[in-house]
Design a protein around this nucleic acid. Sequence first.
DNA 1: TCTAATTCTTGGAGCGCTCTAACTATGACG
DNA 2: CGTCATAGTTAGAGCGCTCCAAGAATTAGA
Lengths: 338, 338
Amino acid sequence: MSQPTMQQVAERAGVSTALVSLVMRDAPNVSDYRRELVLAAADELGYRPNVLARNLASRRTNTFGIVLNDFHNLFFAEVADGIQAAADEAGIRLLYGNGKHSVAGEAEAVETFLQFRVDGIILAGSLDVDTMEKAARSAAVVVVGRTEQSKSVDTVNTDDAAGAALVVNHLANLGHRRIAHIDGGSGAGAAERSFGYQTTMKERGLGDHIQIVAGDYTEAGGMSGTEALMSSAMPPTAIFASNDLGAVGAMDHLVDAGYRVPHDVSLVGFDNTALAAMSYVSLTTVNQPADDLGAMAIRLVRERVDGRVEPHQYVGAPSLVVRTSTAAPAIATDPNGA
Amino acid sequence: MSQPTMQQVAERAGVSTALVSLVMRDAPNVSDYRRELVLAAADELGYRPNVLARNLASRRTNTFGIVLNDFHNLFFAEVADGIQAAADEAGIRLLYGNGKHSVAGEAEAVETFLQFRVDGIILAGSLDVDTMEKAARSAAVVVVGRTEQSKSVDTVNTDDAAGAALVVNHLANLGHRRIAHIDGGSGAGAAERSFGYQTTMKERGLGDHIQIVAGDYTEAGGMSGTEALMSSAMPPTAIFASNDLGAVGAMDHLVDAGYRVPHDVSLVGFDNTALAAMSYVSLTTVNQPADDLGAMAIRLVRERVDGRVEPHQYVGAPSLVVRTSTAAPAIATDPNGA
DNA sequence: TCTAATTCTTGGAGCGCTCTAACTATGACG
DNA sequence: CGTCATAGTTAGAGCGCTCCAAGAATTAGA
């Protein structure tokens, strides 16, 4: 299992190791003749640079670590793709860590990256402020999907409140007045979504119809929340769940209880995950510009690595994806309306 | 951003760097007194071992890399959790790579791991034999979810044929005779599932009812396959999709076309992903023992690292998870039966 | 008290690579 | 032909850590 070293390549090519190093790093000022020589020797030997040694010497790994809060959350898969694409383009290596959906798991993943001396760390859906602050002391850090302010960390996320506004306006335009919201609890962006919902309801003169029930970004939360909503004195004609999974939970309860979607109740999610896109679900939802966020995350980390110190916050624009879970309410004229 | 080194810790603790090294590696034969001293100094300095240097010297990284074929596939998330749990227990660091669902992406991820000199590589859902063979020349490799035979690589997977048998028997026991299968094409394990389906159908004397339609592990494949099936001269009373996603596609078509599941048609998937577990879907499916597979994957890699050379194949036992998508056929006595 | 065995501790030579400083060709120019 | 640039190449000192060989301290035994 012992790998060939630069030394061996140098000997075979009849040059110094320094020259091999230059060739390996694509440095200028190497004659084509020698370059070919070195490349050929490396190839024959099956030489592969040792990142460990390389970076011990150069103090740079040209590698970023990205901690995914939860491998089961499809939204992060989306974001990961965006980030990976941007990293590929920039010639940066990306290593992933499993946050195991827990503060401790995230801290461990971060620690591993730090020990590997990655140049930067991207925290996708991070749970813990301490963890990110600590990481920021040793590497460039950007947080995706959270808005925690911090001088030492950059953030990248979608304008959740604007996304919520998109939803409420869409529903209101369809003629809905009793639009309820299933809150996302402590989930990333949940507070902003709820805030955007309330604000927009008021703007549309629907303040009296604001109805919020607790949830938590899970299917179960969506189910129980919807159950509570539908058994209230004045059940809503449209439900805005704080994320897609919650919306599927809502869908489940609605179908079980005999309501038709969207005929009896319109339903909207958030995140535009693959789940929402499945035709069996076909959920109207809010799309987060994952590619955009990913590209920006990589860019911000690079800037930090290159010396920027002022914190930077990027907010991407959400968009509404209308599918078949929303329609005008069956009873167009709301008996309870203004 | 400059990190404290072992040297600094040694100075502060008033001992040699060698002793610090011993303490850091939890070596025996260090007096409690000195150990405390070193630990305290390290803590005060915020010292963090440099894996790069450590492993340059020891030729071991104590780190395995795992290439996930596709971050969007929830089954791999499940397997990743199993592997992570086993790795945690064994005190092994795990780094993830994004295979981007392409041969090239996987090869890149493998190359990165190799350059980082990981001790072992786990390929989850690998697409390409060349990639794994190449990786095996420089590290211990185990493939999860594929059965490609190879002297240099270990494999870990579920007995797909047995899983298919479980499905067919379950359905047959419920009284179904016209049980159709949506094939998984080139997907991991698809051929075995199809084979198991056919074999078991024959065993149950249902050979004449074998009906297979092409699919590809996607929702769209499930939809079109089901459409073809239901519009055939003798539509099935039960459909066995090669994976959960395909089953959801089937579900979608069935519901759209006015069939009730399971009243008119029973439906079974494979993999027991979170998708199948959602109450809105509630799919009867075959569970792969992800924890089991993960633990075994880690174990096999470790054995390889420790010198084993004979290839090893582990096959885990699948189990059936019965949910609400299967029931006895509405017309108990099949007019076409034997 | 002396010796042998055992437990602790340490110096220092690498691990494979980068990078500075310096050296050697090679040309251009007057 | 001598002088300078400039391009091309290289020696060698680290980077932070591990681990062997060997020395120091402690304990046990006679």
